[in-house]
Amino acid sequence: MINSTLPEPNTDQDELRTIARRHPWRWVSALVALAAGSGIVWAFASSPNIVWSEVGSYLTTRSILEGIGLTLLLTLVAQSVGIVGGVVLAVMRRSRNPVLRMISGLYLWIFRGTPVLIQIIFWYNLALIFPAVALHVPFTSFGFSVETNSLITPVAAAIVALGLNEAAYMAEIVRGGLLSVEQGQSDAATTLGMTRSQAMRHVILPQALRTIVPPTGNELINMLKNTSLVSVIAAHELLTASQQVYAVNYLVIELLIVASIWYLALSTVASLAQAYLERRLQVVLRVRQQPWTTRAANHLASLRSPSPTSDGKS
Rank of each mutant, 00 (worst) to 15 (best):
Gln243Cys: 04
Ser47Glu: 12
Val146Asn: 05
Arg62Phe: 11
Thr293Leu: 13
Ala208Arg: 04
Ile221Lys: 05
Ala78Ser: 15
Thr191Val: 14
Ser46Gln: 11
Val41Ile: 15
Ser38Thr: 15
His202Thr: 11
Glu254Ile: 07
Thr309Asp: 12
Phe130Gly: 04
Gly56Cys: 10
Gly69Pro: 02
Ile261Glu: 05
Ser29Trp: 11
Tyr250Leu: 13
Arg280Ile: 08
Thr71Ala: 01
Pro306Trp: 01
Leu31Lys: 01
Thr240Trp: 08
Met102Thr: 13
Ile83Trp: 04
Asn298Gly: 03
Tyr250Ala: 12
Pro131Gly: 03
Ala30Val: 15
Leu256Gly: 04
Trp262Ala: 07
Ile159Arg: 00
Ile221Thr: 13
Leu16Cys: 00
Ser302Ala: 15
Thr71Gln: 05
Arg101Trp: 03
Asn226Ser: 14
Met194Arg: 00
Ala234Lys: 00
Arg201His: 09
Pro215Gly: 06
Met92His: 04
Gly113Glu: 07
Ala127Val: 07
Leu108Asn: 06
Leu264Phe: 15
Arg94Thr: 12
Tyr58Arg: 12
Thr61Asp: 13
Gly176Glu: 07
Thr191Gly: 14
Asn218Cys: 08
Pro24Ile: 10
Ile233Asp: 01
Ala30Cys: 05
Leu238Thr: 11
Met92Leu: 12
Val99Glu: 06
Asp12Leu: 14
Pro138Lys: 11
Trp52Tyr: 11
Ser271His: 07
Ala188Tyr: 09
Ser46Pro: 03
Val252Pro: 02
Ile50Lys: 01
His236Trp: 07
Glu8Leu: 11
Ile261Asn: 02
Asn222Ile: 12
Leu229Ser: 00
Ser95Lys: 04
Arg288Asp: 13
Leu285Met: 11
Arg286Phe: 03
His202Ser: 10
Val81Ala: 03
Gly217Lys: 01
Ile253Trp: 12
Pro291Gln: 03
Ala158Asn: 05
Val160Ile: 15
Gln274Cys: 03
Gln183Gly: 13
Ala247His: 06
Leu303Asn: 06
Tyr246Asn: 11
Val160Cys: 04
Val28Leu: 15
Thr11Phe: 14
Arg96Cys: 02
Thr211Arg: 02
Tyr246Glu: 09
Leu164Asp: 04
Ala297Met: 10
Phe122Asn: 03
Ser95Phe: 02
Ile83Phe: 14
Pro24Leu: 10
Ala275Pro: 00
Ser271Arg: 12
His202Met: 08
Thr240Lys: 10
Thr190Gly: 10
Leu162His: 04
Val41Trp: 10
Pro308Asn: 02
Leu303Val: 13
Ala127Cys: 01
Val88Leu: 14
Leu266Pro: 01
Leu281Asn: 01
Glu166Ile: 06
Leu164Met: 12
Lys225Glu: 09
Leu31Gln: 09
Thr60Val: 14
Pro7Tyr: 04
Ser80Lys: 00
Gly113Pro: 05
Thr114Arg: 00
Arg26Lys: 11
Val51Ile: 09
Val87Ile: 15
Glu15Phe: 09
Met1Pro: 10
Val77Gly: 06
Thr268Met: 11
Ile103Lys: 00
Glu15Met: 11
Val258Cys: 04
Met1Ser: 12
Glu54Leu: 14
Ile118Glu: 05
Ala35Tyr: 00
Ser197Glu: 12
Val258Pro: 02
Leu264Cys: 10
Ile2Asn: 09
Ser271Ile: 11
Ile257Gln: 01
Gly105Trp: 08
Thr195Leu: 02
Trp123Met: 13
Val137Pro: 05
Ser46Arg: 10
Met1His: 07
Gly312Asp: 10
Ser53Cys: 04
Arg286Tyr: 00
Ser53Gly: 15
